[in-house]
Design a protein around this nucleic acid. Sequence first.
DNA 1: GTGAAAGCGCTAACAT
DNA 2: ATGTTAGCGCTTTCAC
Lengths: 352, 352
Amino acid sequence: MPKAPNQPPRRPLTLRDVAAASGVSEMTVSRVLRDRGAVSDATRARVEAAARSLGYVPNRIAGGLASQRVNLVGVIIPSLSNMVFPEVLSGISDALDAGGLHPVVGVTHYAPAREETVLYEMLAWRPAGIIIAGVEHSAASRAMLAAAAVPVVQIMDTDGAAIDSVVGISHRAAGRAMAAEILAAGYRRIGFLGTTMPDDHRARKRMEGFETALAEAGVPLSERAFYSGGSALRKGREMTEALLARRPDLDFLYYSNDLIGAGGLLWCLEQGFDVPGRLGLAGFNGIDLLEGLPRRLATMDACRREIGRIAAQIVAGRYPGSAAGGIRVELAPTLQRGDTIRRCPPTQGAPS
Amino acid sequence: MPKAPNQPPRRPLTLRDVAAASGVSEMTVSRVLRDRGAVSDATRARVEAAARSLGYVPNRIAGGLASQRVNLVGVIIPSLSNMVFPEVLSGISDALDAGGLHPVVGVTHYAPAREETVLYEMLAWRPAGIIIAGVEHSAASRAMLAAAAVPVVQIMDTDGAAIDSVVGISHRAAGRAMAAEILAAGYRRIGFLGTTMPDDHRARKRMEGFETALAEAGVPLSERAFYSGGSALRKGREMTEALLARRPDLDFLYYSNDLIGAGGLLWCLEQGFDVPGRLGLAGFNGIDLLEGLPRRLATMDACRREIGRIAAQIVAGRYPGSAAGGIRVELAPTLQRGDTIRRCPPTQGAPS
DNA sequence: GTGAAAGCGCTAACAT
DNA sequence: ATGTTAGCGCTTTCAC
């Protein structure tokens, strides 16, 4: 045990120790350390010196109990394996920092039951706020969130009933917008490739919006394929190959995320397909990775870091209007056409 | 403000409320809720019903103060943008779950000063343990960690002085091992491509180990290039192009991570280079993504999830021997030769 | 500008 | 199997 080389079996330091060492009351030490209330410069200096030399670290458990305020924020996300969530978390972490807040992370693995457990555990810490992915929750979870006496920010998805604040994009609208773009480019035999994940509501909504918009234009979705698990890039290859073997007539593939889309793109290029002339491709998320591919996959930016940043600001009370609570921020994802959607319909001239 | 439709301005529920509602003492309620000590089934049932119907959530701040035990674990990592850290965090999160522990995440952005701040904040919560990336810390950070009365696990890197427990791989050895593999395959004009990040000690150690092993074999490192920021995949392309323009004689490129390596690989294949015959390539980390590339990049698995899992188990006291503290776990990264290192030296016949 | 008293909501330790 | 007592280490409030 390399620790504690030769110290006596010290009991943890308290304010009392710092007070004794600096010859003032605990109360004054507390004031100095929290930088609250008037303290003379001389006293302040002595206290700070004492605290530093003792290596005193305040006890936020006691502080939190006494003050009924805590600098922890619960962050509940479905996964850490999909880069989307770390990116959101990164935005959250950076913005919380500015307010001296710290994220406690809970991962649900897309399971509502785990969401309940995690949420319960987090509320037990009486956090300064809860940031939770999605707008779909079990009745128990909704009840806890509604009863919690703290700001709640649901993130990433705006299609649903809000509990308190919401920051995200409309995935239904994102699906619709991509459909419109694809139709405008003249593609008509369109396939969808996505995850089976039954609780990934955002992916489902994108598909629904996509399919609805196609149907409204009189273009039924021709084919769909779903996968689960494994390397997304490879799955993208495999699914694309399988799908096109089954339906060689397809002229567009819409992927539920950029990674499987990138896999599909790489495969199509290797096969020498005419992309985007004969076959168009699009993904979703706007991941960084796409920049380094041989061709830029069409995609739609999901505003991940921005969503995290704004959610954290709302919790910290640093977002305009957030003092009142019940903020709603719907971001507008930008469609990046990239190089995998053709510029105009094949049989049609340029517009007047 | 959609919350609190018509409730009276309730004060937060306490044990006392549950006790009153179920007709027993606070202590008995506490026993039921923590599942500790003997309670009759009848009493237990009544208490549970009361707690549930009131929507009571225990207050861990008060509980932690009284019991001097907290179910939070501080996790300090340099970044969330590099997928490596979310993967470690994912392993940590999963393993902590099993012990009812929750990670509080702090991001240092590779800045020692931020590491100090974050660490101080975390220790203030008297966490059940600290998991921190790397073995390089400022004097102040080391002092805090050494004085902390909790398990400390330094992760990802075993090349350095331990404070308490360490779980990771030797990046120097990883660099050496890759050098040996490359030399054995007969490559002799070798370049290195990495990040400028002055505080990424693991990348530095890999390069040092790599260069040292080459030098020992009488093969100096021919060339090196560094980058910072931007899409790693694209940077990999750009750097590779630039480096080979400057030094077209190189026959091997060792990348400090898989993403820039993948960028380089894609570029080389597009150029029609003979990989691995004329030019060999290797990365580091063993990311999932590589599976979907046209050719599998040689790499070395950094055991990221495993490191996270073990570190969390040590903190939770669930790792063999971890009760004693001061555990050291050095994982052996496996070299995956993939398709970008040739099988045998070009001018030499098959063995015997 | 500084100090004293009370108590935050729970749990350890000891009753019974 | 259940209850009582005494704090955990701070901060709030009020006094000086």
